[in-house]
Amino acid sequence: MNPRWQSTLKEYLEALVIALVLAFFIRTFIVQAFKIPSGSMLQTLQIGDHLLVNKFSYGVKFPFTDHIIVPVDDPEYKDIIVFKYPGDPSKDYIKRVIGVPGDTVEIREKKVYVNGKELNEPYVQYTDPGHISTMRDNMPPRKIPEGEYFVMGDNRDGSNDSRFWGNVPRENIRGKAWIIYWSWEGPQNIRWNRIGMLVH
């Protein structure tokens, strides 16, 4: 092979390896892409929103494990988080943190109380306001244990969340929703006004 071509090929291979290592590093430790597949977070997040999730917000994990090697911070009330669904860790869910360790969460006729105080939740949507469901809209006081988080979708009448399957273990949390980098309902309906929006 021509020495010049050998040199060019070597440069391309080196660049490819560096790019792959960087991509692996970024996805493992810094950010990960996530697509909104359902309406459980309406109207805050729309079906077809594509997000970047900040994986550094809550600490650096050892690759391919849930073990945090560099603690950074803990999830707080109102954070929107992506986590491994406790019922099937192969699936990622996205919800809003409502209760943190030590909190007592209660629901009475759709209204959420944390430590006895009713939450002000301007981000919440109700699609079935006139109907009160025992399981969905009323929950006796529940104390959140250490290392666990109570999460709910903003679309309260259409969200499968901690009311039904329990709390999210700290180690299941992948990161904090950060920014919408793409949003569409289909090729003919790109939501340009949502691109670049911070998630909160």
Rank of each mutant, 00 (worst) to 15 (best):
I69G: 11
Y181M: 03
N189H: 10
V21G: 02
A23L: 02
A23I: 05
G87Y: 08
L9N: 11
R194D: 11
Y77L: 01
S133M: 12
V105A: 06
I195K: 01
R4V: 15
P129N: 04
Y126N: 09
E118D: 03
P63W: 08
Y149K: 15
Q6T: 15
Q6H: 13
V112E: 02
K61S: 06
R191W: 08
V100C: 05
P86F: 15
R108F: 01
N2G: 10
L20K: 06
I80L: 06
A177F: 07
G130K: 02
G87E: 15
I107R: 10
I179T: 08
K95A: 09
G39Y: 06
K61W: 07
F150N: 04
V31Q: 01
K117T: 15
S7T: 14
E76N: 12
I180P: 05
Y77Q: 05
A15R: 05
P145A: 10
M152P: 00
I180C: 06
G130H: 02
S7G: 08
Q188D: 15
D66E: 15
P37H: 05
S90T: 02
G99W: 01
D92H: 05
Y149I: 13
P145R: 14
N160S: 14
F64S: 07
P3S: 12
F56S: 02
W184H: 13
V72W: 06
L20W: 04
D154M: 03
H200L: 14
V17G: 08
P141C: 12
F64W: 01
Q46A: 11
G48P: 03
K176V: 00
F83Y: 05
G116I: 14
L119I: 11
P187Y: 10
D74L: 08
P129D: 11
P129T: 03
I98Q: 02
G130D: 12
V97W: 11
R27E: 00
R142D: 00
E11M: 01
Q6F: 12
R96C: 05
Y58K: 03
R136P: 00
M41D: 09
I47G: 00
R136N: 00
N155L: 04
H131L: 05
R142F: 10
Y123D: 12
K78W: 14
R156L: 13
V53F: 03
D154Y: 02
E148A: 14
I47D: 04
N189L: 04
V82N: 00
K111G: 01
D154V: 13
S90G: 04
N172V: 01
K84Q: 11
T127P: 00
G166E: 08
Y93C: 09
R108P: 00
R163D: 11
E76I: 09
Q46N: 05
W178G: 10
K55Y: 01
G175D: 03
S38M: 08
A15K: 09
Y93W: 15
A19G: 12
P140F: 08
P122G: 08
S40P: 11
N155V: 04
V100W: 04
A177N: 11
S183W: 05
S7R: 15
D137R: 04
H67Y: 09
K117N: 03
R108Y: 12
D128C: 05
N54T: 01
E148L: 12
E109W: 00
L9S: 10
K143V: 08
W5C: 13
A23M: 10
G130C: 03
K55S: 07
L45R: 02
S38W: 04
S183A: 11
D137N: 02
I195F: 02
V70H: 01
N120L: 13
K111W: 00
V53I: 14
I68M: 06
